[in-house]
Design a protein around this nucleic acid. Structure first.
Lengths: 138, 138
DNA sequence: ATTAAAATTGTAATGATTACAAATATGGAG
DNA sequence: CTCCATATTTGTAATCATTACAATTTTAAT
């Protein structure tokens, strides 16, 4: 276990989320695996170590973590929702060949002109294309 | 019918899409209704005038139009895919209260630093929040 | 008019997500 | 520690968007 469980517990507490075993496992997994995993990937990874784990718990937990603002929901993949514990401002690239989602550094997201009275809570910059691996490089 | 059917036919032909009755109806609907409709909204709207119309045809047509680059698929709404015949560079705002998707003008999408060998085909800027109507203004 | 290819249709299957009720765990009061 | 109320987890069933697929219809060329 790379991620310090005390650190995970602290993050959840600060977000107002009671740090149960399952919630810590999900949050910890997201922090250790910056691959923008799906619910199923998270479930498959955690299931062996928590045999009673249910998919519903993953869904519940992720919904809660997103609501509390410590996890970001990505809709870049039209097949299923992906999740990211990195809530810093960055963009995502999805390869249309292998489906892998990469992080992209962005100096700043483009200027956005909103009409008066609009309140912004989230900004997402998604880029689609073919990654270097699938293009045959390296 | 506001949109000139000859114009729709021309667009489809130029995109290499044979302009059947159904395809013209879908493309025309998207051009006239800049509301980023879902498959169901398109189906419900066109069904009365084309009684034999099938949902599958809408799905097939949209997939084709997206592949040929005359329609854009939006994944801003986690519940279902939305479609847009405006393929110019612009961003989208979704209201988390009413679910309506608005167009946003953007001077330019943020600078994106990609690693070498990555090929970009699409760029999407999504903003989420609460629209002025749902905030109680106007 | 014939016929092969393309397009459309309807139904059934798939798969992610949600609803919901039962079971379990937690944490405080006595 | 024990009891109880509440929160959390779990498993199953339901929902709903999307896809698969085979049959039917249309199209366009010969």
């Amino acid at each position: 276990m790379i991620t310090n469980m005390e650190r995970v517990k602290k993050i959840l507490n600060q977000a107002g989320v009671k740090p149960s075993l399952q919630r810590m496992a999900v949050m910890s997994y997201l922090m250790e695996h910056k691959t923008h995993p799906t619910v199923d990937e998270i479930f498959s990874a955690l299931s062996p170590s928590i045999p009673t784990l249910s998919r519903t718990t993953i869904y519940n937990t992720l919904k809660l973590l997103v609501k509390q603002g410590v996890v970001m929901m990505l809709t870049i993949d039209e097949n299923c929702t992906r999740y990211d514990a990195d809530i810093s401002e960055h963009a995502h690239f999805i390869c249309s060949v292998c489906g892998k989602v990469y992080d992209i550094e962005i100096p700043h997201i483009g200027d956005i002109r909103l009409n008066a009275g609009f309140e912004v809570t989230e900004r997402h910059l998604y880029v689609k294309g073919v990654c270097s691996k699938c293009k045959g490089f390296n």
